[in-house]
Each structure stands twice: as structure tokens, then as C-alpha cells.
């Protein structure tokens, strides 16, 4: 499924990879990949999405519930930005991404 199809389907589920260390410092999430020691820092919006990434709640729900009201952004734009973000984090290997809910065993 390419990015456009994901955006249109709305069925994206996300969950942090097991191969990371992470800690929230105020409104910023710092993440380190334990495989290659690469470090990431998420801004407040991305931190909101990351913190809600439970594998069970769809990305569209997360954006509508946690991002749109607090950051006062247009829902479609916010969702497209969120898809772009989670695709990037998945490419870095720190976030699991699936078109179905993700259980304990992973995507």
C-alpha cells in the first residue's frame, strides 16, 4: 500500500518498536534506537501521536482525538502530516506500522 492509499483508507495502526529506548522530557519525546544508537527528538505534535501509539487505536482516531483539538489544525492536513511522520519513523525502524491492529507480538 502506498502513502496515498494509506491516507485514503485511514486504516493505519502504529506501535513503538521493541528495539528502542524512549523518555518524555516535558513535551518532547527522545527516542534512541538500541540497534544503531541513532537518536531522535519528536516535537510536541509528534510526541502526542507517539504517546498514543498503542497498536489498537487507528492513526486517524489519534489525530482527531489528540492533535486536532489541541493544536487547532485542519483535520485533513493534520492527518496527511501524521501519515508522513509515521512513515518516516517506520523507515527508521523505531515505529511499527500496519493496516490492522498490532498486538503484543508486533505487526
Amino acid at each position: 500500500m502506498d502513502e496515498r492509499e494509506r491516507v485514503n483508507s485511514g486504516d493505519i495502526y502504529i506501535k513503538p518498536s521493541r528495539d528502542i529506548a524512549a523518555r518524555r522530557m516535558q513535551d518532547e519525546m527522545v527516542i534512541m534506537s538500541v540497534k544503531d544508537s541513532k537518536v531522535f527528538s519528536l516535537n510536541p505534535t509528534a510526541t502526542r501521536i507517539w504517546s498514543a501509539a498503542d497498536g489498537a487505536t487507528s492513526l486517524r482516531e489519534i489525530v482527531a482525538r489528540d492533535v486536532v483539538p489541541e493544536f487547532e489544525v485542519d483535520a485533513d492536513t493534520a492527518y496527511q502530516d501524521a501519515v508522513e511522520l509515521v512513515e518516516e519513523l517506520a523507515q527508521e525502524g523505531i515505529l511499527l506500522l500496519a493496516d490492522h491492529p498490532i498486538g503484543k507480538e508486533g505487526a
Binding site: 522530557m25 516535558q26 527522545v30 527528538s41
Partner: peptide, 18 residues
């Protein structure tokens, strides 16, 4: 040390985070 980790340490000192 990466810039992110340096910033993290600076922030930790400022906020009193261990």
C-alpha cells in the same frame, strides 16, 4: 555526543531531571 543528546542533557540540568 549527538546534538540531540547534548540538548537533552542541557534540558535535564535545567529541569533537574536525573
Amino acid at each position: 555526543m549527538s546534538t540531540i543528546l547534548e540538548n537533552m542533557n542541557t534540558k535535564a540540568v535545567a529541569l533537574g531531571i536525573p
